[in-house]
């Protein structure tokens, strides 16, 4: 079974800051990680490989530093890694990202399954998976918390508001997984070393993929960011209910009574 896992390198924290002068994101000093749900997707791919045999290819679009995420994926157990890296890819929204990823997957040729995390920690849009499925004309199942494959048939439990639904489709397909699906493994020290010393991360650019610059990156994006800012909250008029424990409990109930809440 040939499985392709799409992954993204994201800042390991949400506690990001803006440069007060330029208003742009400060990325220095913020450690990068593989997007957590993408780790779940990779883990699922490895489990499926253990069960059915085959090959796991990880693919990521990003700056040269994103090679680190792919090295990590190789350490964790992926067979091959491809970095889609080109100045022309910069500034891509999900439309342009899915186009670039999709073009690379088409170039890879035969595959049975594409796995993605449902959402990323940074953008949190959850759009690249479905857009990739559309581009590759694949059936999609999003929010999968369980995936099983028998022969050509893929079954998945898809989370929705009221519970979950059991979905079925035929391979090839694209599935996006949630964090519930598994607990990603952590590579051992020697696997980490091997991935750096013995394995290769291929780098593909726009020219190699035969893509025009206007269809990728910022130029190939339909959305533009017009403003980025830190939100402000705060009512700043808190009234403390004080006294003994009993006073506080009764004080709170009195407030609720006042408002007819009890």
């Amino acid at each position: 079974m040939n499985i392709i896992v799409c992954l993204k390198q994201v800042p390991g924290t949400n506690d990001v800051r803006l440069d007060p002068e330029t208003g742009s994101l400060i990325r220095e000093g913020v450690p990068s990680i593989i997007n957590p749900e993408d780790r779940n997707a990779l883990e699922k791919a490895l489990l499926l490989r253990e069960e059915h045999g085959g090959n796991v290819v990880v693919i990521s679009m990003g700056p040269p530093q994103a090679e680190v995420a792919l090295r990590d994926a190789l350490a964790i157990g992926a067979d091959e890694a491809i970095l889609l890296c080109d100045k022309a890819f910069a500034g891509a929204d999900t439309l342009a990202t899915s186009f670039t990823l999709g073009s690379a997957i088409k170039k890879l040729g035969h595959f049975d399954l594409v796995l993605c995390g449902t959402k990323t920690l940074d953008g949190n849009t959850g759009q690249v998976g479905p857009q990739l499925a559309e581009l590759l004309d694949l059936p999609q199942i999003t929010y999968a918390r369980r995936v099983e494959i028998q022969g050509e048939i893929l079954k998945a439990e898809r989370v929705f508001e009221e519970g979950y639904e059991l979905m079925e489709t035929r391979l090839p397909a694209l599935v996006t997984v949630t964090r519930e699906i598994n607990e990603p493994r952590i590579p051992s020290i020697d696997q980490i070393m091997q991935s750096y010393r013995e394995k290769e991360v291929k780098t593909w650019g726009a020219a190699y993929l035969g893509l025009y610059e206007h269809s990728v990156g910022l130029d190939g994006s339909a959305t533009k960011m017009s403003k980025i800012y830190k939100p402000e909250f705060g009512k700043g008029k808190v009234e403390f209910i004080e006294g003994s424990m009993e006073d506080m409990a009764q004080g709170l109930l009195a407030k609720l009574k006042e408002r007819n809440l009890i």
Binding site: P130, Q131, T142, A222
Partner: peptide, 23 residues
């Protein structure tokens, strides 16, 4: 931005080649 909306909207946007913001 429900489980259906988040499954559907990106697919439509991709088909039409238009932009989509989330949440």
């Amino acid at each position: 931005a429900t489980y259906v909306g988040r499954d559907l909207a990106p697919r439509i946007a991709r088909r039409l080649g238009t932009g989509l913001s989330a949440d």
